[in-house]
Amino acid sequence: MKRIQAVFARLQAQGRKALIPFITAGDPDPALTVPLLQTLVRAGADIIELGVPFSDPMADGPTIQRASERALAKGVSLRQVLGLVRDFRAADQETPIVLMGYANPIEAMGVEAFAAAAGDAGADGVLVVDYPPEEGIDFAHTLRRHGLAPIFLLAPTSSAARIAQVGALAGGYIYYVSLKGVTGSAALDVAAVAARIPDIRARTGVPVGVGFGIRDAATAAAVAKIADAVVVGSRIIEEIEQSVPAQACANVLALVAEIRRGMDAATSTSGGTTWAG
């Protein structure tokens, strides 16, 4: 959790925004995960969301489901994902890793055992897609006891009361889902997102990241002007999917570096935003 706070503090001082790429652990092969994570850092990632493969990723679109299926075909388990985090952390003590996945693999391992192992491996936050605040209160407290930030989603449909409810539990940052739909859906409406961000920031007191539908440097740049962080997932997975394994890192580097440049160009011309707390 501390690493996440440090990243946002540093970026705020620099007047820059966080770039948060997402990849699925073990896709296309567990041996490529740590090199890909290191590539993302070199390309300018500030925080990385690492997907834990699940057989039934209901909130994801076909691209991330295929990534999950490729990882599961290689037998990647939650314990193995934590091992990959540990390997990455041995060489990088700065870049926060947020684990993103579904409840069942965590419950199968045991919530307490998972939180202890994730903290121990060097993870910084956890986002469980199917633990909304209604079902995620105990889990959020367990994460905090192990120094992990409980990351929650908010959606365009979330009410003011709900934003406050999420804000009371959330740590690290809030992940604002920028459109109705699943990951990898059509492009987002920047103006509609811009209208919601100040309210969310005011009611939650944590930085707001925006994701779902960000597919290129131009959109990332537009979102960087209004939010604290930009999350890019399906587009990167597509790049990995379309690359021969030997080229995957080089292709991902080019793609993510371009997004980084777009964001930095956009924020260098506009004033930085601030958030409470």
Partner: peptide, 12 residues
């Protein structure tokens, strides 16, 4: 039982 869904479905 319960409501184990992503935030996008909560309002619906």
């Amino acid at each position: 039982g319960g409501i184990f869904v992503a935030e996008t479905l909560i309002t619906a």
